[in-house]
Nucleic acid binder design. Structure first.
Length: 590
RNA sequence: GCGCUGCUAGCUCAGCUGGAUAGAGCACCAGACUUCGAAUCUGGGGGUCGGGGGUUCGAAUCCCUCGCAGCGCGCCA
């Protein structure tokens, strides 16, 4: 999408006009704090601006006085019908009524592109999410990060960023060695050996049985004769590959697809990028040999005060400097992660977003410090933490124990309640708040279940079109064709307060997209959709009591057409928002 | 002890980065189905925004402080 096609939506247009009107009156004051927003109370008009209050001090004027002056200047704006000054200096704008109809025409024209923004200016953004260890199938805890990251990526694309979706495969640490040993046991089992109980410290899950079997099929007993290092390497590689295939399948079931799967091991094997990164940081003085104070908690028995290789993260706001080398000479996870983020920067990403589980919160400062150090302050890393998910069924906790290998997998949940329910429910909450996921509730068909409520709104709107054929027998059945037809509707027929309110709500969508994208908060889209659906259901029901407010009016094709145009606008945006969240927009739900 | 994240109606949660009288859903009470999907809608009661200070025209939002909860605080990943 080119900049020339950048649709200026109503709020950005008015913001520019307000700033233009205020500039000559406000002296050197900073206009960036001026906002144009929908007022809390609809009786205040269509839009409100804080310009006078924000600028008064720098302009050396009283807020009300400045407000009056700006208001006067705004009265000549072509879109504006009425300007009021209220309260401490709010300027309330009422737009000419035809503005809303024209915005609806824009919606019909743009279709699925309505709300698309050029805010991101095609800037490259790397969104890293999931990155679950390849040591087993995904469980419900991974799910939230997957859905969140995916929706955030969708949102950023829609807001005009050049997004790469990335998965970091932790295939180099001690955990994959454990995986290899666990899988080797299953391999022996597959060859007919009695292995007894899985020893403490190895992964007991049944999911490794298939790995053992495949190894047995391919190698027969020959692996047992190889040196241990080679045994483990072969088993490890196979196990990781099979686990990753499993994970990709799980992600697919959620509709989550990554562009890049980045192997941690690739940073070490071949040319040692971790070592190179450390050397580089040592040159710039960010890495040094030194000692650390003993840890503040946990068991300090095995703490050994020794000189080690440290990253000076305290220079960037971290609490303590962080080790890069283990006592066995291997790199710490952190060291690899620095090299990994440097690789992102090398690949042109100055904007990075990592989605982590809340238990990694303590890791943020050091990673941001590292990103600053490695990029010379040019790159920025935002870390979004997704909080714990508590799995419930009808209010009762679903038991799960990862240690026994008997945990609820992502796949089981998706198979039970469906992709849309999982996704919407996980997104209908701020990422940093704990989430109760109730398997019984998410498939409930009621207003209490937001997924259903929004999807039902979409289905109900489609149902209106199905019924409209009685009045308009030649009504096309594709959205695009209907939109083309409705563009010529007489929008001034949309004069009922409920209809106008819906039009205003629709016009808010582009602004919402930009705000949600800027804040990296896809949940705002979910809440907006719920509100839009709610207004639509309300208007629909009003027609139940007051037949003249129905969308389909017998023997009045003009009014019917205008109202169907509104419904088309609603369908367009419900579908657009649901698509961003990765949730299906069904045409019927009977 | 330190850090991070939370704390908003009885319950589950929003609150658009500092705006006007703090909003939804559930639950509760009272209503609306011969006709566009009642899987819905309309109205009502319900608040010390965890407590206390501060910043300013203005604070749920920013700062300080205290309390509560979860997570983290080794060369694990």
């Amino acid at each position: 999408m080119t900049a020339a096609k950048a649709p200026q939506h109503l709020f950005t247009t008015m913001l520019a006009r307000v700033r233009a009107a205020a500039a000559p009156l406000a002296g050197k004051a900073d206009l960036s704090r001026v906002v144009v927003e929908p007022p809390r109370d609809a009786s205040h008009g269509d839009m409100a601006t804080n310009a006078a209050m924000v600028l008064a001090k720098d302009a050396g004027k009283k807020p009300r006085e400045l407000a009056d002056a700006i208001a006067e200047a705004l009265r000549s704006e072509p879109l504006v019908a009425k300007v009021d000054v209220a309260g401490p200096g709010f300027i309330n704008l009422t737009l000419k009524s035809h503005v809303w109809g024209e915005e609806l025409r824009v919606i019909l024209d743009s279709g699925a592109d309505y709300g698309r923004s050029t805010m991101g200016a095609n800037e490259k953004v790397n969104v890293e999410y999931v990155s679950a260890n390849p040591t087993g199938p995904m469980h419900i805890g991974h799910c939230r990060g997957a859905v969140f990251g995916d929706a955030l990526a969708n949102l950023l694309v829609f807001a005009g960023y050049d997004v790469t979706r990335e998965y970091y495969i932790n295939d180099a640490g001690a955990q994959v060695d454990v995986l290899a040993r666990s899988a080797f046991l299953r391999y022996r089992e597959a060859l007919g050996e009695a292995i007894g109980d899985i020893p403490e410290g190895l992964y007991p899950g049944d999911y490794l049985i298939a790995v053992g079997k495949e190894l047995a099929d391919e190698y027969g007993p020959s692996l047992k004769d190889k040196p241990e290092a080679e045994q483990l390497r072969i088993v490890r590689d196979r196990a990781v590959d099979m686990m990753m295939a499993e994970i990709r399948n799980d992600l697919m079931s959620l509709g989550v697809v990554h562009d890049v799967f980045f192997s941690e091991r690739s940073l070490i094997e071949g040319k040692d990028q971790v070592g190179a990164t450390i050397a580089e940081l040592r040159k710039s003085g960010e890495v040094y040999e030194g000692r650390l104070p003993p840890p503040k908690s946990g068991n300090v028995e095995d703490w050994e005060d020794r000189e080690q290789t440290l990253f000076r993260s305290t220079g960037f706001g971290d609490d303590v400097d962080r080790p890069l080398l283990k006592s066995d000479g291997g790199y710490t996870y952190f060291a690899s992660d620095i090299a990994y983020h440097r690789s992102k920067i090398d690949r042109g990403f100055l904007k990075m977003i990592d989605v982590w589980g809340a238990d990694h919160g303590g890791y943020i400062k050091r990673m941001q410090a590292a990103v600053k150090a490695v990029s010379g302050g040019k790159a920025a890393l935002d870390v979004k933490l997704v909080q714990l998910v508590r799995l419930l069924r009808a209010g009762e906790p679903v038991k799960m124990s990862k240690r026994s290998g008997d945990f609820v997998t992502l796949r089981e949940v998706v198979d039970e309640v469906g992709r849309s329910a999982v996704r919407f429910d996980m997104l209908y909450r701020k990422n940093d708040a704990v989430l109760d996921f109730d398997l019984a509730k998410v498939i409930e068909a009621s207003r209490d279940n937001p997924v259903f409520y929004v999807q039902y709104g979409h289905a109900r709107a489609q149902s209106v079109f199905r019924n409209a054929r009685t009045e308009m027998p030649d009504l096309p059945d594709t959205g695009a064709a209907r939109a083309a037809l409705f563009k010529s509707a007489a929008f001034d027929r949309l004069s009922d307060e409920g209809e106008l309110s819906l039009l205003r709500k629709l016009a808010l969508y582009p602004r919402l997209i930009e705000a949600a994208a800027a804040a990296h908060e896809p949940h705002r889209v979910a809440f907006y959709l719920y509100e839009l659906a709610s207004e639509f259901h309300g208007q629909w029901s009003r027609g139940k009591d007051l037949p003249h407010l129905r969308f389909i009016i017998q023997n009045d094709p003009e009014t019917t057409k205008a109202r169907l145009a509104l419904v088309q606008g609603i369908v367009t945006i419900l579908a657009s928002g649901l698509a961003l969240l990765g949730v299906e927009a069904p045409d019927e739900m009977r």
